[in-house]
Design a protein around this nucleic acid. Structure first.
Lengths: 159, 159
DNA sequence: TCTGGATAGTTGAAAAAGTCAATGATTATT
DNA sequence: AATAATCATTGACTTTTTCAACTATCCAGA
């Protein structure tokens, strides 16, 4: 994406806005997600993380003791992708694998103290990145956007 | 993603919702986009299109006479990706390339009559897919979601 | 006008990401 | 006890993304 330093699109990029696809929710989601990814990944670079590894670390640090299969479902990734993401984080001493207590096939992934620390620091950076990516919305609009996204994903939950 | 026939997530997928990442806009966008893509691409299969080729066809059919570079910027794709997408659509007789009138380096992509017809039919399918992907939101909420996404992308435009 | 630097499209290679089937270990079902 | 299903893992394979050339064209300034 052609970008200026502030994350704004180049001026000429507005020409195609009137196209009918601009009222397609799938397209709007894709485009905002793409723009946000750039900012997010740039913010995570300093921690040697990407969106993907950050989200795995976030789940490991959540206290919810997720299995890799649960992570795969939740993150919309193939189980084999989780394997390599966890491999990497584990090599770096950020997470641990432990066999599930009820089900020894499963591997429960938890963050180490180092992992928790890195997650906290990285979270600050992504919060900053998020407000940068959504800086055209005011506080209430950001909250409403998130509420609608959550409702679309998990109706009736307060996630 | 583990899915039921209705596009709902499998029951166990709710366990991780309380994780802090569920309030991260980037993650929510990614997840809803991922879920929507599955439905969208399934709907477009019948037309031998994917989200990508559909969006290129949509711009070609828009009457805005976009150049490939403008398409690349607008769709957040690399110019070389546009080349192969347009190649494919052109081989199928759905779009035409014409040199730009002011700038002969540029290639203006327009839909043929066949392309217009296919686009119309495919649009019906994606509309259906969209309401399926967002079926947990009511009409007003969908409108509000789109409004916020558009505002985040193009503040001050009525796209 | 000429020249140098930028830009549009194209090609092709390389890296990254996604998909999928097979396997061993374990659990669930019959 | 036997069969079927599930979890993590590996490896192959495809698709997507990224990037560096290259040609043709445009543009700005000498």
């Amino acid at each position: 994406m052609t970008e200026t330093g502030t994350g704004q699109l180049a001026p000429a990029a507005d020409k195609l806005v009137p196209a009918s696809i601009s009222s397609d929710a799938g397209f709007l989601l894709a485009k905002l997600h793409a723009a946000g990814s750039v900012v997010n990944n740039r913010a995570l670079e300093a921690f040697d993380l990407k969106e993907r590894s950050y989200s795995v670390l976030a789940l490991a640090a959540s206290g919810l003791e997720p299995s890799q299969r649960e992570m795969a479902d939740f993150l919309s990734l193939d189980p084999s992708q989780i394997v390599s993401l966890v491999d990497d984080l584990e090599k770096r001493g950020l997470v641990l694998r432990a066999p599930g207590k009820q089900d020894r096939r499963a591997k429960i992934v938890t963050a180490t103290a180092d992992g928790q620390r890195l997650f906290s620091a990285a979270t600050k950076a992504t919060r900053q990145a998020e407000s940068e990516a959504l800086d055209r919305l005011n506080r209430e609009e950001v909250a409403e956007l998130k509420r609608l996204l959550r409702k679309a994903l998990w109706p009736g939950l307060d996630g």
